[in-house]
């Protein structure tokens, strides 16, 4: 179905839709939006692998699929390994993988499936140098199983297994820096992205296609259900995550760091602005917020230094 050319030109994203409505994501789901963007970026010529996660359900129950692209469902911890196998098979059969007209082999996994149970297979995929793209959509907990904490859950968050009570605090550990673990593999391309900045995400997806070898993108994807946030605030929250430097946007390309913040010059907004829209943070005390704020700014300074020294 076509729309006027002059309208098409004004769109900041490709017009083509390869993500079908009728999918079963919750209202305001960041992961669903992320999938829509990835499917826009590569058209149909991408093979997806999805482990156990919300997207297993989002993609539709048998006999339906929300993807206008091939999709292989796999076990929780295997994304890195399965995409390695798919890439190997395509190469053995003489297909072009990655590059302008090559097939994109994509792993799409949640934070639990990446930072926790799938970390080993991810490391193997990165270390062996396969031509593929691993996207970790980060909604900061095991949402599909009912909001349990993962190693990507931030300090102070309520989850169903960090419920908070008289004796036990909320989540006590800071968010695991999966992207740093990925970069330690010295892969050619790694980046963070956010569903609130789809044009930036799209650019990164295109880069991941162009640059040979393994690529990794950590995509910030709000979850209204698990974050106890209003469904209409998903983009606003994701935007604030960037503006508070809680989830800074940056790229690591061939050994060089580059921050892609819309506002690198400005001071980050106070973390409260990000926290206050989400019910999961409502039990935090002033001291707790202070702890998180300090951590955010420390990490932000560290990233800025890296960009300065290795920019």
């Amino acid at each position: 179905m076509e729309i006027p050319e002059n309208v098409k030109k004004r769109l900041s994203l490709p017009f083509e839709e390869n993500f079908y409505a009728g999918h079963t994501a919750c209202q305001g789901c960041g992961a669903a939006l992320g999938l829509r963007y990835v499917l826009k970026a590569y058209g149909k010529k991408a093979i997806f692998t999805i482990p156990a996660c919300c997207s297993t359900i989002i993609a539709g129950p048998w006999p339906y699929s929300a993807f206008n692209a091939p999709l292989f469902h796999t076990a929780f911890e295997t994304t890195g390994a399965v995409i390695s196998g798919i890439e190997a098979a395509l190469k053995a059969k003489g297909y072009k993988v990655k590059g302008e007209d090559g097939i994109m082999v994509i792993g799409w996994a949640g934070d639990g499936g990446t930072a926790d149970i799938g970390l080993q297979a991810l490391s193997g995929f990165l270390e062996r140098g396969h031509d593929g793209l691993y996207i970790m959509y980060d909604n900061e907990a095991y949402m599909n199983t009912g909001i349990q904490r993962s190693s990507s859950t931030p300090y102070g968050a309520w989850t169903t297994n960090t419920p908070g009570g008289k004796k036990h605090f909320l989540e006590r550990r800071h968010k695991k820096k999966v992207i740093d673990i990925v970069i330690a593999h010295k892969i050619p391309y790694a980046a963070t992205a956010s569903v609130a900045f789809p044009e930036d995400f799209m650019k990164k997806l295109k880069k991941a296609q162009k640059i040979p070898g393994p690529s990794f993108i950590q995509l910030f994807a709000p979850c209204p259900t698990g974050w106890r946030s209003p469904t209409d605030k998903s983009i606003e929250i994701a935007r604030l995550a960037v503006q508070t430097a809680y989830f800074p946007l940056f790229e690591y390309e061939n050994g060089k760091y580059k921050i892609n913040m819309p506002s690198t010059k400005k001071e980050p907004k106070p973390i409260e602005e990000f926290l206050k829209l989400q019910g999961r943070f409502k039990y935090m005390s002033k001291d707790d917020i202070e702890v998180l704020q300090k951590w955010v700014l420390h990490e932000w300074e560290e990233l800025k230094k890296k960009a300065e020294v290795f920019g």
């Binding site: 390695s84 196998g85 798919i86 098979a89 080993q120």
Partner: peptide
């Protein structure tokens, strides 16, 4: 593919086989 575990060995074989190999 010199994988990092047997679990991944079978997972990679599954990926490869699903892709037709």
């Amino acid at each position: 593919v010199p994988v990092e575990s047997e679990h991944s060995a079978m997972a990679a074989c599954i990926g490869a086989s699903a892709a037709g190999a």
